[in-house]
Amino acid sequence: MIALYYYPGNASLLPHMMLREIGVPFELRLVDRTQNAQKSTEYLKLNPNGRIPVLLDGDHVLFETAAIAMHLADKFPEAKLAPAYGTPERGEFYKWMVHLTNTPQAEFRSWFYPREHVMDDEAVSSVKNAAEKRLNHMFDVISQQLGGQQWLLGDQFSAADLMLLMLIRWGRGMPRPPRTIPNLGALAERVLARPAVQETLRVEGIEAPFV
């Protein structure tokens, strides 16, 4: 039995999209952030960091979004959400998954929650502005590397494209949203056109504009 602890639009969006791409039966378990449920005693037993998501795969409890994503890609190779083991393409997949989780995903923490990074409230705007500047640069670099390719791995769709869509969505409220960068906007539209992605958004109650 697979169960995903999620909150709409949160980092759980990536494994949720993957599970629908895979087509395996699974259970969604809402972690209500509006009630601070991610900090409850029960949830902290699953993820002591108090963050979403958590994946239950039988008796296996797994947290960290990228780790969950790579586990699902490995467990269900028939879904082809990652290239074959031992290939150069598999290495590129690892590169993108680690890059996306270590750079823009981590940087969004400063953008959304700047007060976590300061002791003086007067510095909040400075932290947020600096995070915005770094995110803009990160997305520019990703766009340059993507170029005119259909997907991050070239002709092969992968979980990395789903992850990038999630991050583009998170930036929709920025003064310069990632969707306005041509290569990224085009990739986002291709990912959004996938039936599994549309079903995920519907189930989570996420309405347009998606990015």
Rank of each mutant, 00 (worst) to 15 (best):
V54Q: 03
F210A: 02
Y113V: 07
N36M: 11
A11S: 14
R51G: 04
S125F: 09
G185P: 04
L56T: 05
A3S: 14
W151N: 12
L135F: 02
A82I: 07
A69G: 13
V31Q: 00
L201H: 02
G173A: 08
N129M: 13
F157D: 04
F63A: 07
T101F: 08
L14I: 15
A69F: 02
H71S: 09
P83C: 13
I168K: 00
T34A: 15
A11I: 00
R29M: 05
D59M: 11
R20C: 06
I142M: 07
E116Q: 14
S12H: 10
T200G: 04
Y94C: 14
K128L: 09
A123I: 07
G185R: 03
L187G: 00
E78Q: 15
Q105N: 11
A106L: 13
D140N: 12
D32M: 06
L167N: 02
E64F: 00
F93L: 10
K80A: 15
T87A: 12
N47H: 06
K45L: 08
T87F: 13
M17W: 05
A84K: 13
R172V: 07
D57C: 07
D74P: 03
R190Y: 04
L164A: 05
I22G: 03
N129F: 02
L44D: 12
I168M: 06
M138T: 13
L162S: 07
L135P: 00
Q35S: 12
Y43K: 04
D161S: 11
D155C: 03
F157L: 13
D161T: 10
F93N: 01
E89Q: 14
M97E: 06
A123G: 01
D57G: 08
A82Q: 08
Q144T: 11
T200Q: 07
V24I: 15
M163P: 01
T180V: 14
L13H: 06
L4Q: 05
E27V: 05
L201D: 00
P88W: 11
G23A: 14
S40L: 05
A84M: 08
V211E: 05
F108M: 06
T87N: 10
T65K: 09
N102A: 15
E27H: 07
R33N: 05
T41C: 02
V197I: 09
E78S: 12
H60A: 14
T180D: 15
E89G: 05
G205F: 08
E89V: 03
R190T: 01
L162E: 01
L30P: 00
T41S: 10
R202V: 06
A84N: 05
E189D: 13
Y85K: 12
Y5R: 10
G58C: 07
L192D: 05
E107T: 14
V31F: 00
H137V: 11
A106V: 06
P15S: 08
D121Y: 09
G86Y: 10
S110L: 12
F63L: 03
